[in-house]
Structure formats: C-alpha cells, structure tokens
Design a protein around this nucleic acid. Structure first.
Length: 401
DNA sequence: TCTGGGGTCCTAGGACCC
DNA sequence: TCTGGGGTCCTAGGACCC
C-alpha cells in the first residue's frame, strides 16, 4: 500500500505575516504589502475582499482601515532562509519552489522522526516557534496532491490526504485546482461542459486533446487520476535572471527608454556576476499601452557577464523594436538573461596573433587567461577551451579537450 | 480584475548541418 | 547535383505559477 509521505509546506500570506511578526501592532489587523499594487494581503485583509495584484486604489476603497506598508524584500528573503533551514533540518530531500513554499520527502523516516503527519505537525510548530511565522502543510502520496492539500488547509492548517481518500478529495474540486489550468484552459474546458476535476478524469484523452493539445491532455488526465510520478528533488540552478519595470503612464521618449533599460541591465548584470554565472542569450520584453506584448532575443556566440556586452545587445534589440515603440506607448520594459552557463562552462577569449596561427604557442597569454578565469570562478572549473575570434565573434576550437 | 516583479515550460517555424 | 529525413539551435509568442 502506498504511503502519504510527501509534504508541501506553504507559508501563509508570507510578506504580510513577516510584517505582522515584526510589528506586533499590526497583528489581527488587515495589512496590505505594496503601495502601488497589492503584493500580499494578511488574512484579515483577504477576508475583506483584498487579493494579490489588486490595485492600491481599489484596495483602499474596499478596506480603508487596512494598514498599507512598503515591501521589505530583504526581510522576506532573510525570513525565507531561516524557514528553509528548518525544512532542511526536517527532511533529507527538500525541493524549493519559491520564496515561501517547498516540497519535503519524508519517506522512510518513520523510525527516526515519526509518521509523516507527526513530522508535519512538528515542522509547523518549529516554524512558528523559531521563525515566528504561520505555515500550512499538506501531506499526500504525490506532489500534486500534497500541494492541493496544503491549499485546502489554509490558513495555518495541516491536512493529510490518505491514499484511499484521494478521489473523494480531488474530484469535486474545480478544474482550476489542476496544475497548469489557468484562465484560458478553464474557458476552453468549460466550453465543452467540463467544470470539475472528476469530469476531467472521466473525459477521453482524444476529446481533451482537441481542446488543449496532446501533451496538456495527457498531463491533465494524469493529475485528475492521481498520477504524478515526479519525485521531490532539489532544484537545478536557475535558468534565467531578469528584471522589469513599468512606466506608469507610458512613454515613447527614446532617452527615457534608454535610461530605464540601462538601469535594468545594470541590475541584472550585477546579479549575474554575484551568482557567478554567465549568460549567452539576452532578451527584452515590452508591453504597450494597448496591452499587447513583444519580445526580442539575441544569442551571443559566447557567454558573458559583462554589463557593456549585455548593454550592446540590449541596444540592438531596442533598435529592432524602434518602430513599435514610436507607434505605441511603452508601459513596461523587461530584461532577461537566459541560457545561463555555470562556472564550469564559461569560456574565455584570447586575441589571436596577427597571422592567426601561433596563438597556441603563446602559452603565457593562455596561462594568464586561465588564471583569470580561476580567480573569478574558482579552481577546477576549466573543462575545455576555445579561441574566440575577436573580429568575427565566432568560437574557433583550437585546443584539444 | 485589467496589470507587479519575479520566474518556468511549451510550441511552431526557420536556419542550418549531416 | 539533387532529394529527403533527422536532429539541433534560435526566435517569438503564449500560458501559467507564486
């Protein structure tokens, strides 16, 4: 018989709870984090109809007595680290999902730490006692079921879905409960009369595929039938780093666009270097006054972490979008650095000698470059080397592995 | 409900290579 | 020289998540 031994732990109204913890005068009161738009709302605020992404004016209209505080990302990041230490102390395998939620696999820990339910209860107590934050935990046989369970237990709850109760728990839920079903998919499935998870489970794959495509159909059927073989595993490293910023009133002024874009490049490039990573793909994302969007991307022939190189690519991408920007108000700019390479695959560039021939013989320049890379990324990082032609920007393999 | 700031994953078409 | 199939990489857009 399978056992419910996956935990999904999810901090309640995380940002707002940190604010209430740090300022006791806020406890029990409706708290809104975020001045322009609601980033988080305490349960007291949620009870009055406030929700995340709601704009500040509407929130004030609905609940004028709410206390509005500016976000303190540093405090949230610190609180998250403290909670993750407790997670890591609780289970051998922890999969972080975001700043405020994670999966824990406690399979086989019965003799050391107790049943999964006992472990979950102890975890909740520790997070409250040591981090001062309420957290909800769902316990089930699969990740998906554990996540739905934690959501159903909120706030400050603990819910176990035993294997023989899975269908009874899952099937009455609306299809939005399924991972990957948002606004668009909901509308499509509602259009053919499907509203609950149970109805998805009873629909043929062919019929579902006609609405949502083959791969989504398979995925939805699996989840609706309690099949979710994904193991709890530590996350790979992040795949992109980005930043975005809105023009509240829109803009077509090239100077204004340029200055915001450089500020964003500066920020993301610094984060890239702090993480010891390098990017190969540089993208921009644009949103316009009519809510249309556009994106442009450029992949460099070599990875880089330099602000100047990234900025040059970003300028090219903006030039390619100049027509659109001149036509419509720009309301948001995003910069994203993707195709991240770890320190173990960062390449270094060496200028070729004038005849293009004797670079291999110039061992001192090579040694120097190798030392530079080691100094920046640590020992044991060099697995292969290529030469990059400075004029053409094309990697030319010249050295044996 | 109309818009925050982060991210991930998927798809389709084109270029290019063998 | 031509044709075709298979594979990878890149770009753009879209849906979704917290």
């Amino acid at each position: 018989m399978p056992v419910a031994s996956i935990l999904h732990a999810d901090l309640d109204a995380f940002y707002a709870s940190v604010e209430q913890r740090d300022d006791p005068s806020l406890s029990g009161r409706p708290v809104i984090v975020g001045t322009g738009v609601v980033l988080a709302a305490s349960y007291e605020a949620k009870a009055r109809g406030i929700y995340t992404t709601m704009n500040g004016r509407d929130a004030h209209r609905i609940c004028p007595e709410a206390v509005v505080v500016a976000p303190r990302m540093d405090a949230y990041s610190k609180a998250s680290k403290a909670v993750y230490e407790i997670f890591n102390d609780t289970a051998p395998v922890v999969e972080g999902i975001s700043i405020d939620e994670a999966f824990l696999d406690v399979t086989g820990m019965e003799h050391i730490a107790g049943t999964p339910v006992e472990i979950a209860a102890a975890l909740r107590q520790r997070v409250l006692a040591e981090a001062g934050l309420p957290i909800s935990v769902g316990v089930a046989r699969t990740k998906f079921l554990a996540k739905v369970a934690s959501g159903a237990s909120k706030p400050d709850g603990l819910l176990v879905v035993e294997p023989d109760r899975e269908r009874a728990f899952l099937h009455p839920l609306p299809i939005q409960a399924l991972w990957g079903v948002g606004k668009v998919t909901t509308a499509r499935l509602n259009g053919i009369g499907i509203r609950t998870v149970g109805e998805v489970a009873r629909t043929s794959q062919v019929r579902l595929a006609a609405e949502v495509g083959e791969s989504s159909a398979r995925h939805l059927l699996d989840l609706a039938n309690g099949r979710d073989p994904r193991p709890v595993e530590p996350r790979e490293r992040r795949k992109s780093i980005g930043a975005q910023s809105a023009f509240p009133r829109g803009s077509r002024d090239p100077a204004q666009v340029e200055s915001l874009a450089s500020a964003l490049v500066d920020r993301t490039a610094r984060r890239l270097r702090e993480a010891g990573r390098a990017c190969r793909t540089v993208s921009i994302g644009l949103r316009f006054g009519d809510f249309s969007r556009a994106s442009r991307a450029r992949t460099l022939p070599f990875p880089t972490d330099e602000t100047e190189t990234i900025l040059t690519a970003v300028r090219e991408l903006f030039d390619a979008s100049a027509g659109e920007i001149a036509e419509k108000d720009l309301t948001l700019i995003g910069i994203s650095l993707g195709n991240l390479e770890g320190a173990d695959t960062v390449q270094m560039g060496l200028p070729l000698a004038e005849d293009g021939q004797n670079a291999r013989a110039d061992s001192s320049a090579l040694d120097q470059a190798v030392d530079d890379v080691r100094a920046r990324f640590g020992e044991d990082v060099i697995k292969r080397a290529s030469m990059i032609d400075a004029d053409q920007g094309v990697p030319v393999p010249t050295l044996p592995d």
